[in-house]
């Protein structure tokens, strides 16, 4: 279980997150909803270790951990960014295998085998040798998911996974997220689409802007 305890974060004296606590059960889907500017992305960035909260604790299975510490190779958190942040100079295959090879020290062949089966699950197998600029928005997003999954994270976070997609693709991501749930991974989804949230989640966290 992932526990966030009293996460507080402010920017230049403005408090964005105030003493936020939430428990996320293993293998469940938590949606974080709320209006623009409420601090959803900020919370996700703290969980991903891209921003540091001013105070508060992250606890995984009873042990405190620091998401910003990347000294250990074991991946706890994976992230699918709102605009994907794929590496434009690398093929889909290279995007997915880079970190397993560089960070987990897998050999190229086994990294590629893992990647191939991930790409297949996400119906991307015919795009392995293409570059991100050749893909549609939905395909890029699935590459981003495959890239994160290749690191075998315990928790996968998404920032606004539906914002760059048209409605039919929205249901497709929802399906992917629900499929992934079957593999035992915990997922945290930031969205401002309450309908999408209620369709996929086990638990919904509403964040509201803090009035000074």
């Amino acid at each position: 279980m992932l526990k966030l305890e009293n996460i507080t974060k402010s920017f230049n004296g403005t408090t964005i997150l105030n003493q936020l606590s939430v428990d996320v059960n293993d293998n469940s889907i938590l949606s974080i909803v709320g209006p623009s500017g409420a601090g959803k992305t900020t919370l996700l960035r703290c969980i991903a270790g891209l921003d540091r909260p001013d105070s508060g604790k992250f606890i995984l299975d009873g042990k405190e951990f620091d998401p910003a510490d990347d000294s250990d190779t074991e991946q706890i958190i994976g992230v699918v960014f709102q605009d994907f942040n794929l590496f434009p100079h690398l093929t889909v295959m290279e995007n997915v295998t880079l970190a397993p090879i560089m960070v987990l020290k897998q050999d190229k062949k086994s990294a590629q085998e893992t990647a191939e089966s991930l790409l297949k699950e996400l119906s991307l197998e015919s795009h392995a040798q293409q570059y991100p600029f050749e893909l549609s928005g939905g395909q890029k997003q699935r590459v981003a998911i495959a890239r994160a999954l290749a690191m075998k994270p315990q928790i996968l976070c998404y920032d606004e996974p539906t914002s760059a997609l048209d409605p039919s693709l929205r249901d497709a991501v929802g399906k992917v997220i629900l499929e992934l749930k079957k593999t035992g991974i915990t997922q945290i989804v930031v969205t401002h689409d309450p309908e999408f949230a209620s369709n996929i989640s086990d638990q919904i966290l509403k964040v509201t802007p803090i009035n000074k």
């Binding site: 991903a48 270790g49 891209l50 990347d70 794929l86 994160a148």
Partner: peptide, 19 residues
Amino acid sequence: GQYEGAKVLGLSYWQTIRK
């Protein structure tokens, strides 16, 4: 976003710069 994408994948600073 390129640096952040690399960071959450666990790449070090020099790996990110190089690759």
